[in-house]
C-alpha cells in the first residue's frame, strides 16, 4: 500500500543522517588511529600501526584498560546482585504494589548522572556525611580516608548508577515468564527453591545477560565518576583518552584507544546477543 516514493521519503533522510553523523565519525576515528602527531603538534596523515604498537608495549595503557575492565566487572556483579533479587521480588512477590515499585526504580534514572555522582562525593568525603556520622556516633576517631578518591568510590557510585539498568531487562524477562509454568512446577511437586533454579532462573538468563552487558559496557567507558571520585588509583581508560585529546594532545593515539574500546564493546554486544539467543526458549 505504500508507494516507492513514500518509502524513499521515510528512508533516505534518516539513513543519510546516520551515514553523515554516525558512520563517517566512526570511520574517521578508524583513520585517525593510523595517523600520528608531528613535533610541531600537527596531525600527520601518514598511515602506520605505530599507535597500536604503543598500546601493546607501553604498560600504562593496557594496565589501565585491564583495571577499567576489573572496575566494570565489579560494577556488573554488584548491579546483578542488587538488581536480580529486586526484580524477582517485584515480579513475583510485590502483588499490587508492583507498578509503584517499578516506577520507584525508574525515578533515579531521570535524576542527572552528575548530580548523583556528586552526591556520593559529599557522602564519602573526609568531611562528608558518612565520616562525620561515624565520628558523631564514636565509631571512629579520625575520618576514614579510603572512602573517597579510590576505586572503591568509583565502583560504589557506578553500581548506584547502573543498578537500574541491570534491573530493567531482568524484570522484563521475569515478567514474560508464563505464570502457568510456575504453577505447573509447584503442582508437579517441586519446592519453591527447585522451581526457582529449574524454571525461573533459566528463563530469566537472557534478561540477566542483557542487564550485565549494559552495566559492563556503560561503566567501562565512564570517565566522569573516576575524575570526580577516583583519585589517582581510580583512573580509568577513558580518562587517558580524555587527556590525549586535551592537554597531552595526541589525537591519533587517543583514537586508537577509543577504537579498541569500540571494538571491545561491539564484540561484547555480539557475544551477549549469541548467549541470549542460546538461552531463550521460543
Amino acid at each position: 500500500m505504500f508507494s516507492r516514493a513514500y518509502k524513499a521519503a521515510v528512508t533516505l533522510p534518516p539513513v543519510l543522517w546516520v551515514v553523515i553523523f554516525l558512520v563517517t565519525p566512526y570511520a574517521l576515528m578508524f583513520c585517525y588511529s593510523f595517523w600520528s602527531v608531528s613535533a610541531a603538534q600537527t596531525i600527520v596523515h601518514s598511515w602506520n600501526l605505530a599507535n597500536y604498537g604503543v598500546l601493546l608495549h607501553v604498560d600504562v595503557y593496557w594496565q589501565t584498560l585491564l583495571r577499567s575492565m576489573w572496575i566494570a566487572a565489579r560494577v556488573t556483579i554488584f548491579s546483578l546482585l542488587l538488581g536480580y533479587p529486586l526484580a524477582y521480588f517485584l515480579s513475583f512477590r510485590a502483588g499490587g504494589k508492583k507498578d509503584l515499585l517499578y516506577q520507584l526504580v525508574i525515578i533515579p534514572l531521570w535524576v542527572s548522572y552528575l548530580v548523583r555522582a556528586y552526591a556520593w562525593k559529599t557522602i564519602l568525603g573526609s568531611d562528608g556525611v558518612l565520616n562525620t556520622l561515624l565520628q558523631y556516633a564514636h565509631v571512629t576517631k579520625h575520618p576514614l580516608e579510603f572512602l573517597l578518591y579510590s576505586p572503591f568510590a568509583v565502583v560504589l557510585t557506578l553500581t548506584h548508577i547502573y543498578t537500574p539498568f541491570a534491573f530493567l531487562p531482568i524484570y522484563a524477562a521475569l515478567e514474560h515468564i508464563p505464570r502457568s509454568l510456575v504453577e505447573a512446577s509447584h503442582d508437579l511437586g517441586a519446592s519453591p527453591a527447585q522451581t526457582f533454579w529449574k524454571v525461573i532462573l533459566p528463563l530469566s538468563i537472557p534478561g540477566a545477560i542483557a542487564g550485565a552487558t549494559f552495566a559492563f559496557v556503560l561503566s567501562l567507558g565512564d570517565f566522569l565518576a573516576p575524575l570526580l571520585l577516583g583519585g589517582p588509583s581510580g583512573i580509568m581508560i577513558s580518562n587517558i583518552v580524555v587527556s590525549l585529546f586535551g592537554a597531552a594532545y595526541n589525537w591519533p593515539l587517543g583514537a586508537a584507544i577509543s577504537l579498541c574500546m569500540l571494538m571491545l564493546v561491539v564484540s561484547l554486544l555480539f557475544f551477549s546477543e549469541r548467549l541470549e539467543k542460546k538461552w531463550s526458549f521460543s
Binding site: 534518516p14 546516520v18 553523523f21 554516525l22 563517517t24 576515528m29 567507558g221 570517565f223 583518552v241
Partner: peptide, 24 residues
C-alpha cells in the same frame, strides 16, 4: 545494519559518540 547503528549510541559510552563527532 541501519537499525543497529541507530540504536548504538544508546548503549555506547558517551565518550565514543562525543569523540568521533569531535573528529568530524
Amino acid at each position: 545494519l541501519f537499525r543497529r547503528l541507530v540504536l548504538l549510541p544508546l548503549i555506547l559510552p558517551g565518550i565514543i559518540t562525543g569523540l568521533s563527532l569531535l573528529m568530524l
